[in-house]
Design a protein around this nucleic acid. Structure first.
Lengths: 197, 197
DNA sequence: AATTTGATATACCGATCTGTATACTATAAC
DNA sequence: GTTATAGTATACAGATCGGTATATCAAATT
């Protein structure tokens, strides 16, 4: 009769989720130093003490927000690449197109993790580390795409693609132009053609 | 007998220069929001009122610091590329090596302009605009290198090189690895080989 | 010598920042 | 019904923020 078969340990924490979601949205739009906790609390409709019951500091909330962003982004990316093509040798190009699509989002403000590393520059700062881990995870994803395509030296191809895409992302943010993605895309096409086994 | 032939208008303003220099050094190390004007004043040994006689706001000081950074960086870059090679078809590779060298500086904390655009995200903000103008100027420099090398479609080559280098810079800042620059360098070598007339 | 100029020191303003303390409330478990 | 639990509201602490006001001072101009 019990509606929940797993007896203890609810693990819902809806307030925490609300806090992370509101914080993330604000951080993405206006930066980490640019948003105070009071704004976050107002947006989330949560009391201040609740925040400090779930997180020991604002930095901890930032890290949690970045972890959610990482998860959201990589999940979206995988689905989008899958959606675009099921041919392994087209997946890398689909990846570039997917990122371009992502950056077309109206409230795009540059790669959130590049921004995080820019605002928290010390390499051992938890926020900086979270950004580094995200970059590493995305690289691993792209490397797998290159492996699945059966290309020679997939790690090298993956890095080239990552450099081009991060460069295009930076260009889009600073100058507003999408041209970098088009150039990156063509470069990747040629890269793949040259790396066919 | 007059030691200065141009009579009026001395234009020295040493305090202003000191302020800009100290501000820039601190901004590079700890970010724009991360450094308050009091720290800058203490570092420069200048009174607060002097700052506000030369600049209307902190943002104006930031823009001035970025303009100096732009000038310092581009001058250094031109000299370094010249120093490395006098053969036009090697200059683009020398450019990549030069940026790698620049990023080896012990107090490197990512591209100052990418960081500026990350902290001031609104495209019409003066600081963001200064960052965009710097990127544009660097692109023009690289494009000229490509033209001097007599490559086909120099604009396109220049953009590919710029994407790779910005990507490598981001990688170096986030993960600390210099590998991006090595991959970028090799990619540029192959790019040039394929674009020989 | 008188005056303008550029810079100084110091105090202060209101706002905002992260984080804490305290007391109250609703819900759910035992 | 009693008691934890989770959250709320409010106030406040201590610091720092960007920026201003005022009064003084030294040097250079006239």
């Amino acid at each position: 009769m019990s509606e929940n078969p797993t007896p203890r340990r609810q693990r819902a924490a809806p307030r925490r989720d609300q806090l992370v979601a509101s914080a993330l949205a604000l951080f993405v739009r206006e930066g980490f130093h640019g948003v105070g906790i009071d704004r976050i609390l107002a947006e989330a409709g949560v009391a201040k003490m609740t925040l400090y019951k779930h997180f020991r500091s604002k930095d901890e909330l930032i890290v949690a927000a970045l972890m959610r962003r990482d998860s959201d982004y990589r999940n979206w990316l995988m689905r989008e690449v899958d959606r675009q093509t099921d041919k392994p040798n087209e997946a890398l190009v689909a990846y570039v197109d997917a990122v371009r699509l992502w950056c077309r989002n109206p409230d795009f403000n540059g790669c959130t993790f590049i921004n995080a590393a820019a605002e928290f520059r010390t390499p051992d700062h938890p926020v900086h580390r979270a950004a580094a881990e995200h970059k590493q995870a995305v690289f691993a994803f792209v490397e797998n795409l290159a492996k699945d395509a059966g290309l020679v030296n997939p790690k090298r191809i993956a890095m080239q693609v990552r450099l081009l895409v991060d460069g295009a992302t930076v260009m889009k943010q600073t100058t507003g132009s999408e041209e970098g993605f088009l150039v990156a895309r063509d470069s990747v096409v040629k890269l793949i053609a040259a790396a066919r086994k």
